[in-house]
Design a protein around this nucleic acid. Structure first.
Lengths: 252, 252
DNA sequence: TCGAATTTGTGCGTATGTATC
DNA sequence: GGATACATACGCACAAATTCG
């Protein structure tokens, strides 16, 4: 054996090859930690690392007590972003686009707070004075009873204070545009900044995907006549979703 | 301490927070393994894991013998997608949005060929007959003399055959919309399917980024009255770019 | 220039809790 | 209930790279 590389990499490579070749098809059980230790003659440290790497690469999935299994790639859902925005534009009512596609709000948590500096910038808020000036709402969206999207929205209290829609979940209005319209704020513009990166541990845990999976992180800001009226941070798995932007094709 | 989460996560969180807040700016040294063990009262196993996670998340960079340092994120360029499309829409001329932002075509390679099946589907082409029916052009875009974007575009020969714009780089017309307009095809719709994943070896090599870096893979299709007239596969580094979509804000 | 101290990378052994079968 | 497997955590050792006096 003239291989200079670390043992754990050699083993990972070997298993990766077996997965790619189909020798270990999706669902197949990978060797357990003790088995790796025996088969390859290594310590638990190495066997442990092998599992961690395969999980991080999204190739394997571990279930405590059961074993480690080859992961079947999920079919990617299409998430039509521009379309969402359009449907949420003034006049819409009833379930918004998210719900129409089988997504439901799994949980949410609203509270008033002092906006952090990056949010202040996005909402064009003045210097912080220590006074609570935004409503922060953390949503978890689900599909088929699985969490699939995390969203944290921020709305300036200056806009909503004293209105019936201070707390997003109060009342019948669904979707930002609809809610804002009900207090006379017409949302007429929206931008999304799309970032892709490996998910933080908590994000991946919240989405029930392997740690460090690739995720989309979308920064969405809605405007009314040029003034930002709501901004949100949206996180979703890049393995499960493709984002669709652009003009929907009309006649087809 | 009522925190139920694993120790390594708590420590990672603490350091991540310090990095995000700027308390530990890019280039700053993170606590070493012995320091973490002492400061947080944990074993080397935990301290080790903390470093591994921060590295995997791209927040830190370790040099054996020297230490672990906060990684300076390359400042992310904003790639304004919708805007690009709009500027490329009929009537525009001169340098397109890509060029305006300092991007140049580094190299390209055009040839006629038989479209593969996925492209046939996107362009709504009939069954392949073995006859060359598309022009495939592979571009490498650069910025500051560095390759930053790969793009492969496909145009049906049925549209362009016999016109002066069969080969994209012939003539003065820059940008799809402009070129198509010159032969009477008015592009009036465009969709982009945005995917994020770890880059393939060739892609990362072409972009001069580390293997398995996170990349955007965009599938863009342009339509004229509902009929697809051009489609392209675009790959760019997710570490270097953020995609911007949506209505640009008017009055500001 | 050299060597000591430090730090990361790799590897070893072990223990305990908990989920699964 | 018992065996198995993963998750987390403890301990230690040594090589290679770097830093610094």
């Amino acid at each position: 054996m003239t291989d200079e590389r670390p043992k754990y990499l050699q083993i990972v490579d070997d298993l990766r090859r077996k997965i790619a070749s189909g020798e270990l098809p999706p669902g197949a059980r990978l060797p357990s930690r003790p088995e790796i230790m025996r088969d390859y003659g290594v310590s638990n440290t190495v066997a442990l690392r092998v599992g961690e790497i395969l999980k991080a690469e999204g190739l394997a999935e571990a279930r405590a007590g059961a074993g480690t299994f080859v992961r079947g790639r999920p079919t990617r859902q299409k998430m039509t972003r521009a379309f969402t925005l359009r449907l949420e534009m003034p006049g819409s009512s009833g379930p918004d686009e998210m719900e129409r596609r089988g997504h439901r709000i799994w949980s949410y948590d609203s509270r008033t707070t002092v906006a952090p500096s990056d949010i202040r910038e996005r909402l064009a808020l003045p210097e912080a004075t220590g006074v609570e000036d935004v409503v922060r709402t953390a949503y978890v969206y689900s599909r088929d009873d699985e969490p699939v999207m995390l969203s944290t929205s921020w709305e300036p209290l200056a806009l909503t204070r004293g209105t019936p829609i201070v707390m997003p979940e109060d009342g019948p209005h669904v979707g930002v545009a609809d809610r804002m319209l009900s207090i006379g704020v017409v949302i007429d513009g929206c931008t999304e900044l799309v970032e892709a990166r490996t998910g933080e541990v908590e994000e991946c845990a919240g989405l029930k995907i392997p740690p460090r999976s690739v995720v989309f992180a979308i920064e969405r800001t809605c405007y009314a006549q040029g003034r930002p009226v709501q901004t949100a941070d949206i996180v979703l798995s890049a393995e499960r979703y493709v984002l669709e932007y652009g003009e929907p094709v009309r006649s087809r």
